[in-house]
Design a protein around this nucleic acid. Sequence first.
DNA 1: GGCCGCAAGTGAAACGTTTCATAGACGTGA
DNA 2: TCACGTCTATGAAACGTTTCACTTGCGGCC
Lengths: 339, 339
Amino acid sequence: MAAANIKQVAKHAGVSLGTVSNVLNRPDLVSPTTRQKVLDAITALGYVRNDSARQLRAGRSRTVAILVLDVSNPFFTDVVRGAEAVVEEAGGMLIVCNSGEDPHREQRHLDMLEEQRVQGLLVTPVSDGRHPRLDAFVERGIPVVLVDRGSGHPSRCSVAVDDVTGGRLAAEHLAERGHERIAYVGGPITIRQVADRHLGAATALAERDVPLDLQLVKTSSLSVDAGRQAADDLAALPPDQRPTAVFCANDLLALGLLQGSIAHGLRVPEDIAIVGYDDIEFAAAAAVPLSSVRQPRAQLGRTAAELLLEESINEDGHQHRHVLFQPELLVRKSSDHHR
Amino acid sequence: MAAANIKQVAKHAGVSLGTVSNVLNRPDLVSPTTRQKVLDAITALGYVRNDSARQLRAGRSRTVAILVLDVSNPFFTDVVRGAEAVVEEAGGMLIVCNSGEDPHREQRHLDMLEEQRVQGLLVTPVSDGRHPRLDAFVERGIPVVLVDRGSGHPSRCSVAVDDVTGGRLAAEHLAERGHERIAYVGGPITIRQVADRHLGAATALAERDVPLDLQLVKTSSLSVDAGRQAADDLAALPPDQRPTAVFCANDLLALGLLQGSIAHGLRVPEDIAIVGYDDIEFAAAAAVPLSSVRQPRAQLGRTAAELLLEESINEDGHQHRHVLFQPELLVRKSSDHHR
DNA sequence: GGCCGCAAGTGAAACGTTTCATAGACGTGA
DNA sequence: TCACGTCTATGAAACGTTTCACTTGCGGCC
């Protein structure tokens, strides 16, 4: 019973091999009596279809892969869950691969996925440049959708979130609450997200009726510790020069800044208002609930999967699309105060 | 060029089909000249091996699957990363599947993985009982390793972390710091981990030279909010009845308790010492860094994968093993105070 | 010179499925 | 009675690989 195949099922049921296949794939072509005989045989022998053979014959698999930069990053886990829902809805299976931001592991995974002739690939490549490796997929007829990367490429779809708008939302909110000395805490500025959020915030402030300046506080990383460090720096300033509001490049920085500010005796939001980015799980659970910009992560995954499946089904008529999602500002207590 | 196969490569290189296969799988059997000709042809045609055919022939794949309860739970993501390292080291590929604690999705994934004839399966089943479904894998010759579940099953390996010891560590630590009124905050008590940690802590205290009682504070969930709620309850007690130390069933509770205690004007650790469980990322980053019991999560994944590969290779001589890891107590400021 | 062994390369068979052209049984209408 | 269509069931071919028994060519040894 270790490995029954279709032939043995056919013999056991007293029908031909093709009939068993029909029961499996087009049951309506088979008379009820025969069908039942076959189903009984399948149960009796513990038959399980061999997907390799099926795939070999079909030329492609029903498996969609998602290759992420970091399986333990909540951003990607939410994207995965969104994509999963769509793929499973369509009767497929999503497998998750992790490059860990390592180009070699990315390469290895791409090699194996290409050998497996997956139905499609959702991927956030390690590097942001050109990707000849991905073109090979497309040429082989395997659709590729870029996630949060390199929008605008002509030969594949992409989905991303608009970080410039995110920065704008945060800055506008703070300006509307009457703040006039606003700072942006973040770094390294070489990270696209860090730069885009800064750009959006700075632009929004400059465009106001009374243009405002956005003070830039650079950090060496996007961690809680770096946020605390920034709090030390800000607390050291004389109160009349200290920003009354801070927009942080992500929530880790914001939480560190929040803790550090409180430790320095500053009241949040009265003395210093804080807005973070990402709306991580702990944002709402902080000592002072943290305002934050939320990205529609699951939506990103869902849409990516939908674009992929559409391309996969409608191979010829498919038009590549580049979907840009808008983030959303969640105002919580850390910035909910009018000056 | 869309889909070159071995035959076309052979023709292009002017050799037989078997020779191409030898170049791919046993290059030392082929003379350097011929080998180079074949490699050139492979490049020229953009040939990529078809894994379905290879698998069909070989009867099994080189893919190991891990089926977890929740891809977005850091516990599992760390387990995944540990397993990943081992599997990739061995030249295989790890695919991650997510049951989302839903028995139907678990079932679906198991069905598809069985059809795919994966090399092996690491799994944390949704339910804790018997698993006839997994026995089918074993009968088919697909090794299964249980992760953090049902140790002791005779027909498969398992890995888990000893929660009783974890509870013991936390309680002993608090007792040694001179605490005599100690509480355990957690619930629902039907969750095995919650119960085991409680058992370990209660036992440790009862076994002391001067036996101590462990006060039980039940919560309805393991969330930050439930922890805050518990803080309210404790703060309402008269100081001479209030526990001077609390061990929480997980870090979310502990962080909520920490915030709530501070909000009620209690000093941590002077008025109330707190120990959590899981050592989540934010434990060390809390306003008062949180003491916590850490589970060797990546090690769990690594060992699970090692057991699996061992069974896979040494099919006959394999002895099923049940590895129980010991957790570790990290003392941080939230409990670092002698009464 | 005859024999042997070795290195290199060959090509048919097998893996398990799906598909497709075809055959048989049976009922219906002319 | 015959021709025809419908419904079922059949089994060979094809998917692309790996393996293995086999040939071929060549050099060494007695």
